[in-house]
Structure formats: C-alpha cells, structure tokens
Design a protein around this nucleic acid. Sequence first.
DNA 1: GGTTGTGAAGTAATTCACAGCA
DNA 2: TGCTGTGAATTACTTCACAACC
Lengths: 205, 205
Amino acid sequence: MSIPEPTIKRLCKILSTLEILEQEGNSFTSSSKLEQISGFPSHTIRKDFSFLNNPGRTGSGYEISALKGAISQSLGLVGENRACVVGLGRLGSSLLEYPGFNNGNFKIVAGFDRSVNKIEMMDSTVELFPAYKLEEIILQKKIDIGIIAVPADVAVAVAQKMIDAGVRGILNFAPVRVVAPEGVVVQNVYAVDYLRFIASMINQR
Amino acid sequence: MSIPEPTIKRLCKILSTLEILEQEGNSFTSSSKLEQISGFPSHTIRKDFSFLNNPGRTGSGYEISALKGAISQSLGLVGENRACVVGLGRLGSSLLEYPGFNNGNFKIVAGFDRSVNKIEMMDSTVELFPAYKLEEIILQKKIDIGIIAVPADVAVAVAQKMIDAGVRGILNFAPVRVVAPEGVVVQNVYAVDYLRFIASMINQR
DNA sequence: GGTTGTGAAGTAATTCACAGCA
DNA sequence: TGCTGTGAATTACTTCACAACC
C-alpha cells in the first residue's frame, strides 16, 4: 500500500521534529505532544503513522528512536544519499554547512562554482570543483541529488547538466522553475512563493 | 466561496511562472503552455483559474498581465506587505537582495542582526538595526511579515518577539519548527525536509 | 485544429469515533 | 484516565468530459 504524498511530507517534517525532541533529551513522545510542536492534528499524525509498522504501543506513546526508524524505513531513507551543491555564493556556501544535511541519510560530497578563484580561496570540509567538471564528478562520485544555488539565468542550464549526468533528484533554490523528465524528482524552493502564500492567508481570511 | 489551500499554493507558483514568461517577452499564454512550465496539469490549472474572475477568453488563451492581476486580486495580494529579515548571516544577507522580494507586493523595510559591528560594516539599501530594537521597529514601521534567518538556538525567541510585536506572518528558514498562535501564519522552510522528500520519492517508487 | 470554463463524476485525504490497551 | 490504531463517515480535491468559443 503506497503512502499518500501529503502523508510523506508530514512524515518528513515530523522526522525533523523528533530529532529536535531527542536533542532536548526526550526519549518518548505522543501524538498530542507532536501536535503541539508540529501543528498537525493528533488524529492526522496517528493516521499517518498507520502507514508505518507498529511504531508505537497502544496505551503508552512512542519511543522516539523506534519511531524515527520506522519513518525512515517506510520512506526509504535508508542508504546514504549523495548530494552536491552548485553555486557557492552566500546561499550555496551556507548550504554546504547546513546542519542536518550531513546526517545519517545525506552526504554532501561536492561543491561547484564557476569561479576557480573562489574555489581556491574557500576552505570547506567538502571537496570543491570548478563548474565545468559538474557532469564528470556527478558520474564519478555517483551523486544522486543536485542542489542548485546559482543565479536565475544559469539555473536551468545547470539543472539540464545534472539531469544529463544522471541525477535522480533536484532541489532548486534559484528563482526559476526547473522542470525535469519523468523519473527525476524536483523541488523548487522559491522564497517569494512562501511570502505570497503567507500574505494571501493573512489578507484573505 | 473560499479558495482551497492547494489551489492557493499553485496560484502562488503560477504567479512566479507568469512573471518569468513576461520577462521573456511573452504577453499571452495558455493552460497547456503553463502545464509545460509549471508541471501542473492543464485541467488543474483551468480549475484553479475558475476561482478567479474570468481571467481568460474562451477559445483564445490568457493575457498574462490580466491573469496576474486576477490572481493577485483573488489572493488578496494587493497592498504593500512590509517585511523584515532577522539574522544577517549568509542566508539573511542574500535574502535582503533576493530578486522578487521587493516587487509590487512586498517590501523589505528592515534588517536586524545581533552584531552591531556587522550592521555598521554592511552596506545595504535596506535600513539595518541591532537586534534589540526588533519589537520597537516592527511597531514603528508597521511590519506584518517577519523572515527568520538566525541560527537554530535563537530562532524560537526571535519568533516570539515578532509575535509579541504583532507580526501576522512568519517565514522561518532556521532549522527549528516555529509554532504560532491562531492568527499568525507560519511557513517553516527547512531544507532537510525537501531533501528527505526527494530521497523518499526516489527510493520508494 | 486550437482554446477556456465548469458541472458532474471519481478519487483521495481528513476527520470521526471507538475498540483495545497500559 | 490517557493513550494508540484503524475502519467508517465525511469532506475536500482532482480529473473528466463537453459546451461554448476563436
């Protein structure tokens, strides 16, 4: 039975929430507590969890580490997903060190920038390359997710190179909409869209 | 008749798409063309548009500027929404100049940082203030949307100050989930959530 | 041929409500 | 009493299909 997309998105967010709870020293939680923190209603959370394999115990709540495992497993977040960041301006360079990117399931294995000079000047724990090596390195390092943080005018070209090199997912922060063929998952994160959504919710209701 | 939330989100994205089309010199478009660019099926787009006031002409397509107006109007994106950015690290400082933030409907009227030194050194077209003035300036400048770009450990405190000062919407880029009382719209943009979603779509299906 | 706009039909997601358990 | 887990009921959304139009 496949998991509905809204459920997947909520589970991703709940996973982050659980990590925060764990960092704060908790080892158990409940659907009502998760409602307070995540904002999702508790019955929705429980329904979402019904797609997992018995993550909790009827009567008591959820053991956080077991719950995290159950979510990760059901979402297929198991192996190590290898990612790269293209464009090392302010946004890109902050992404290289974004907390949580280099957790168990993800690893940023390369950064790219057009400017060879910038690459040589930056010091980073991530290996850096000039942009023209993008396709070569994606193949060589078996990168499956590309993160785009370049200016709008080159974002589409970068995306195309990623797709040609065989990337299976793209996270695009450039203010341009990237479309990809069937089989490549794209998420466009365009900050203005969120601002507009917020303004629309504020002004409309 | 209120507009369903999925429709609102799509309309926000389509609005950006229209701006791109317009920049490229187009003045007309159609639902099938928008399908190609946005990825949403054309019938969904047309259904979404049915919540607007006759944006197109049966038979021919849509006049982009009229369509933009109809969407903006229906979403309540009419006045000027005043926003501020808190935290002027790499992410925050890039947001200050983010293209499209300072378009017709939004205006970034203030930037804040804890470090007085940084504020004095940065040159920006946006007025900058030390963090302790946050509440004062929000009131004074009638800011209704707060953008959070501070580290995780202070994000919740910043959000609380914004809420206390009367902000009506929060766009949070810190890797912490901000929750707000009824009446304050929050969007948490946590990059890891998108990575997880992508990985889950890649690995699962 | 192309297009929009929309009721009707179909599908999907949410919410309810309660049994079963600690 | 407070919790989970889940069928059933409800609600919401999407897709279809076609009339009206260029």
